[in-house]
Amino acid sequence: MDFSFLNQPAFSGGGVYLDWVISGVKWTLLVSVLGWIIAFSMGSVLGVLRTSPVWWLRAPATVYVEIFRNIPLLVQMFIWYFVVPEIVPKFMGDWLKTKMPMPEFWNAVLCLGFYTASRVAEQVRSGIQSIPRGQTNAALAMGLTLPQAYRHVLLPMAYRIIIPPMTTEFLTIFKNSSVALTIGVLELTAQARQISEYTFRTFEIFIIATIIYALITLTVTFSMRWLEHRARVPGYIGGASGK
């Protein structure tokens, strides 16, 4: 084991190899966090629609979830990057391929976001459906409209219930972000590979990458646990013994 290569001047770009690692971490975090913002907001809307009593709201959400959840992420990445620009009108395709800034990066963010949104939607739906029906009925009987019932009764509880499975989804998006390397985003895994090619220090650099991924995911796990603790409702799931 010899980690001195981190401090050696990198082949290109003017820095040392440690700078490549840092840049990899930066792109991993950017792709994952932006992807998560899309996934969480879209997934929440889709999840609510999935439980709607109105069929023409439910149907499109169901179709979306089934399509995006069932196609492998790697295939989706290729479709967005290589196929979509060829089937849209030529001026749009040209823009997607060359004119838009950082096409690989935004492709990866959107693809990861859309894919994870389908998974978040399912968590939100299961959270809402795990609340006894009586609560919806009671809310409506008190004169709340259906949207108000969602806003004040169902969603506040549903989001609390699904914090543990959402933690898993949030962790998964960091790990899935490495798929972005297939379309040329130089995130952490791609940089680790590149450094291993230039320095032949394969074991060392992948040990470093592993530790960084573990640190990122442990941070997420602990923050979500803190959030769960902060948000709990005394007398309800896990909050009964409240200190």
Binding site: K97, T182, Q194
Partner: peptide, 28 residues
């Protein structure tokens, strides 16, 4: 060459020659 001549080329990596050629073919 890019560093030496300061051309500011934007590099995109691909995993094999077929994929690289595809990038030229599709105009990426």
């Amino acid at each position: 060459y890019n560093d030496e001549k300061k051309l500011g080329i934007n590099f995109i990596p691909a995993k094999d020659h077929a994929e690289s050629f595809l990038a030229v073919e599709t105009g990426r």
